[in-house]
Design a protein around this nucleic acid. Structure first.
Length: 569
DNA sequence: CTAGGGTTAG
């Protein structure tokens, strides 16, 4: 602004003052009454505002007022300023039980269990006796060990009849993994609230006791969104995504309203299943029901679409995120070593990969060893393969994959004696091969197939299609890769055992149950075998279908007789 | 009118 303008501007208008209003305000607002300050404290929304009120308390000698001090402390805590909260607490003379409980609660809520416990002991030292409120606060963050001590104090003080305290105790035992004690406390509760039921439900679900969880869940008369979420998530987190989806449908049928957490859980289940249609449906459900796509939901959507093989949709969601979380500034973890091992392994630089794993700063996990062993198999390096397998077996690190890969290598060389030895070794060690399972989603339903499985209602049609597929394959000059069958059986039997691999059953079902030309998406829990891979390539050419197969490691996009993995997986 | 503390899901 120029100085000329400054001088030519009219002076600001003088506010007209109503004298009676002014004197009234002066009388009522000064000095501020504790009532007014309490109200202000409850309503204030910014830290700046709180600091102003704090100043007013000091200015007017109200800084030892128990209620105002308590409210101020609570507001500081809820705004995440535990430092101010604690400073206020330390300057307060003889804090009462309310103040103690509140500050303990604030620390417990922020996961500062050591500090919460410290204040608790300080309180006991000062001769202030804890009550049921104090215990339900302190129990929230404490360890199992401390929980047990607190439990005995609860009983001593006769506070163990309180519903909140009991729920807190169930939660402590549950978090500490002591399911038995959690159940004991729970079962002795004379009345069980929705929250205490949900706490116990969470305990079962977290520890994989899904049958117990479901029993409790089905017995619950009143169900809110939290308990639905707990139950659905229990299935999702324990390899039962199909059950998770089924339960989610029941949730909708029961007119319960899903929230963001439900969506996150169900999207994860869809990803595990490769259930693209269900995932898409969920996406549109969110759009129709005004459930906002937060970054977390967007990430879950991208994860789901990626795992379902629809990279186009994943990209679409990704491009719509304004603010992107990024996985930069991360410490190299075991996954990154995994990438390196895969890279070196595929390039045939096995010794280098082996050296890398041996000299890692982090403890190598079975997946990493598996990657290395897989590379040995790929390049037929039996010598190193044996060395690694021996190491794994002797260090108790072997899983079913170790044995399978090793016996694969021997089988490929026709060394059936060694194959038999490995099988015995595997049997003796007690590890079992995870059965191969393929699933396909058709019309919003997930169909699962195990090798040689005859349980599907359309079994007859599926096997007819398998026959037809064999005919097409033979006509194209295909010979089954019988050498990959591990059992020492006749060639004809080997062919038969290959024919009913779970991915072929799923593929046959996909062909008979969808319109010609529709892309087929299959999810397999293990790695796809090389015979199934070759067959799927040919089928994609013969039928003109795009086939996406997600196995344990990666996606295979089969189009017109070739696969995106370049036959290198 | 008058004041204050507690539980479950990711």
């Amino acid at each position: 602004m120029s100085s000329a303008l400054l001088f030519t501007s009219p002076p600001p208008p003088t506010p007209s003052i109503n004298r009676s209003t002014l004197s009234f305000a002066a009388v009522t607002n000064f000095p501020p009454s504790p009532d007014k300050l309490a109200l202000l404290l409850d309503k204030s929304s910014s830290i700046h505002h709180l600091l102003q009120i704090h100043a007013a308390l000091l200015r007017h000698g109200l800084h030892q007022h128990p209620i105002l001090n308590f409210k101020l402390q609570r507001s500081y805590s809820s705004r995440g300023r535990l430092d101010y909260s604690l400073a206020l607490f330390n300057r307060t003379l003889n804090p009462n039980i309310f103040f103690y409980t509140s500050i303990i609660n604030a620390h417990a809520l922020h996961g500062l269990s050591q500090e919460a416990l410290f204040i608790y002991t300080q309180m006991l030292f000062e001769g202030v006796q804890p009550n049921e409120f104090t215990f339900s606060s302190i129990l929230k963050s404490c360890s199992l060990e401390h929980g047990k001590i607190l439990h005995s104090q609860v009983i001593k003080l006769g506070l163990d009849s309180d519903l909140y305290v009991k729920t807190g105790l169930v939660d402590v035992y549950a978090r500490g993994g002591d399911v038995g004690s959690a159940r004991l406390v729970f079962e002795r509760m004379p009345e069980k609230s929705l929250v205490s039921l949900t706490t116990m439900l969470t305990c079962y679900a977290k520890h994989g006791e899904l049958k117990e969880a479901r029993l409790l869940f089905d017995g619950m008369v009143k169900k809110d969104v939290v308990c639905w979420n707990v139950m659905i998530d229990g299935y999702t987190q324990h390899g039962m995504p199909k059950e998770a989806l089924v339960l989610f449908r029941r949730m909708l049928a029961a007119k319960a309203r899903p929230n963001e957490i439900t969506i996150l859980t169900v999207l994860s289940a869809c990803g595990q299943l490769g259930a693209l249609e269900s995932g898409r449906w969920l996406h549109s459900y969110m759009q129709n029901n005004d459930i906002q796509v937060s970054v977390r939901v967007a990430t879950a959507l991208i994860d789901m679409y990626s795992k379902c093989g629809s990279l186009e949709d994943a990209r679409l969601v990704f491009d719509r995120i304004y603010y992107k979380d990024v996985e930069y500034e991360i410490e190299p973890k075991i996954e990154h070593y995994g990438c390196m091992v895969n890279l070196l392994g595929r390039a045939g630089r096995l010794e280098e990969a082996y050296e890398l794993v041996k000299n890692m700063k982090v403890e190598p996990d079975p997946i990493l060893w598996g990657a290395l062993l897989g590379a040995c198999r790929l390049h037929g390096n039996l010598e190193l393969g044996e060395k690694i397998a021996e190491y794994l077996v002797s260090h108790n690190l072997a899983n079913s994959g170790t044995y399978i890969l090793l016996s694969n290598m021997y089988a490929a060389k026709g060394d059936w004696e060694e194959v038999a030895r490995i099988r015995t070794l595997m049997k003796d060690s007690g590890v079992q091969k995870e059965p191969g399972c393929s699933s396909i989603e058709v019309h919003n339903r997930v169909h699962e197939f195990l090798a040689g499985n005859l349980k599907h209602p359309k079994t007859k049609e599926i096997y007819e299609m398998l026959e037809a597929m064999n005919g097409w394959l033979k006509a194209h000059g295909y010979t089954p890769q019988t050498e990959i069958v591990l059992h020492d059986i006749g060639d004809e039997q080997k062919e038969q055992s290959l024919e009913v691999h779970s991915e072929k059953l799923a593929l046959a079902y996909g062909l008979i149950s969808t319109q010609p030309g529709t892309p087929i998406k299959i999810v397999k829990n293990l790695r796809v075998c090389s015979d199934c891979h070759a067959v799927t390539k040919l089928i994609s050419k013969i039928t003109g279908r795009k086939i996406v197969m997600r196995d344990r490691n990666r996606f295979h996009h089969f189009v017109n007789g070739s696969c995106s993995c370049g036959d290198y997986w």
